[in-house]
Amino acid sequence: MPADIDGLSLSFWILAVVTVGAAVAVVATRNIFRAAIYLVLSFVTIAALYLTLSAEFLAAVQILIYAGAIAVLLIFGIMLTREQRAGSPSGRLSFPALGVAGLVAFALTFVILGSRWNVSQAPLPADNTVAIADALFNQFVLPFELASVLLLAAIIGAIVLVRGSKE
């Protein structure tokens, strides 16, 4: 670590420790409801990490989508399962799962450390919300629209599946 620890890098390390700690707690906690709450914590700290990178649009969207919608859906799902107070029972697959997860973690670390990360020399846009909008709706409008059509198809598919057959 560099000797000159300023406020930003200090907050980065605090947030990083909390994020990783919360993520570990999600897996390690027996109580599945508390695990979901730890997951929310890690979502929020990731949003805070975005804030320290002055990506406030991304941070707000992270909170809105992950903490506000996805986490709530997860908790809703937990509520609808039986025996949620007992937590997840330990299955026979825990050791194979550990092996696979370790392998994935190893591969990801290897890739992240091994690849060359290009740093853009362009100056930061003054208002990065405008920059994101410009990129999404002018520069990459076709992929953006394709993704939205895909999502729409998924939504309609989900509705059709849930409706079931009606006589």
Binding site: F33, E56, F57, A60, I63, L64, G68, A71, V72, I75
Partner: peptide, 25 residues
């Protein structure tokens, strides 16, 4: 005066529901 003001309000507002759920549970 955040330049994402209204988005911030919507994002923060969506967190409260987790508290409601935690209280109920």
């Amino acid at each position: 005066d955040l330049n994402i003001g209204i988005l911030y309000i919507i994002a923060i507002g969506s967190v409260g529901v987790i508290g409601v759920f935690m209280g109920g549970w």
